[in-house]
Nucleic acid binder design. Sequence first.
DNA 1: ACCTGAACACCGTTCAAGT
DNA 2: ACCTGAACACCGTTCAAGT
Lengths: 201, 201
Amino acid sequence: MTTLSRKRSQKAPYHHGDLRTAILQTAGKLLEEQGVATLSLREVARSAGVSHAAPYRHFADRDALLAALAGEGFARLSEALEAAGARGPRARGEAYVCFALEHRQRFRLMFGGLLRLDAHPGLRAAAARTYDGLVRAFAPLAGPQGAPFAAAAAWSLVHGLAQLLLDGHFPGSKRGERETAAFVRDVLAVVRFARAAQPSD
Amino acid sequence: MTTLSRKRSQKAPYHHGDLRTAILQTAGKLLEEQGVATLSLREVARSAGVSHAAPYRHFADRDALLAALAGEGFARLSEALEAAGARGPRARGEAYVCFALEHRQRFRLMFGGLLRLDAHPGLRAAAARTYDGLVRAFAPLAGPQGAPFAAAAAWSLVHGLAQLLLDGHFPGSKRGERETAAFVRDVLAVVRFARAAQPSD
DNA sequence: ACCTGAACACCGTTCAAGT
DNA sequence: ACCTGAACACCGTTCAAGT
């Protein structure tokens, strides 16, 4: 049943052309539906229509698949932040929270601590790009020596807000998208970043 | 066969007096050593010296044990925050980050999203006490109507900072306690909370 | 009341064997 | 090169049976 040479074989032969991509897609869908904890390699394989050993041709083990999914997540997050960042720092912050709320399980996988960044090449780099983007964005606002701290504070703020919203820790956070967006705006609006750090005691 | 009537039996009969507590302690130790992902009920039982089915007398399932561990965590976090809060809001924030760094896996369990707060009675209440303490602490600083937003912002800030530090997302965060504490101070020092929210566009 | 041992269905991982 | 099926050690959970 593939395009050029072969016509209507009964069963697809080995795979549908790119099993690695197919597995990542299937796993991504299952991840978002049910979370990391119950995401099994065997179910992914079943769902992709291959034997339970087939994924091992493309991923060293379950952790490697999870790391690939997290890597995709960091890349998409960076893209979303860069796109929104053009409309200013506040839009960037809101985009961060949006990403978390729209890809809940992916976000949890990225920051849940199941994956050690050091153990997976490329994953740390993908994560670092997110931070770099923030530092660049804050350089004009906080001055050269203040930028890393301001960027760290800003990232912490939106990251914590996203995480606590996901967990439902704020009273009344079960409301709709509209109300959540307003809550996010109001929380972010209350914060100011000082141009320079003060002596800390 | 209990304390009064029995002297030196060969083997302890059923358990060492309070299996529930023993399991919680063993599980807490194993959790901190190896993380949630690989914490198995069977290993806890083995490590506590009972059969693998014994824990089910005290916990409905693995999730219930994890929820109990998380509940302990929220209670201890609240205590630590109240104690430090007497020395001012900044000390409270630093105590939050300290707790996360000193109980890394417990903290991840509390906020990793493996447990749905609604599914475990008492867990949400324990978590809510943390937020309540923050709102009370921010009432004098941010005014009555600003307090919830300021408290949410403050919690988000220290929570995100803790989480990102745990994951090693800040360059150079592999240094010692001293340097980490200084970094935390500098990041927190850069943030100001406005008395009232401004129009958001 | 509290714990044990066997049993079941599932999983991650490996490996010889197939095409 | 890429995939399969059997196999192994492990796990969560249940349940009849022991004390």
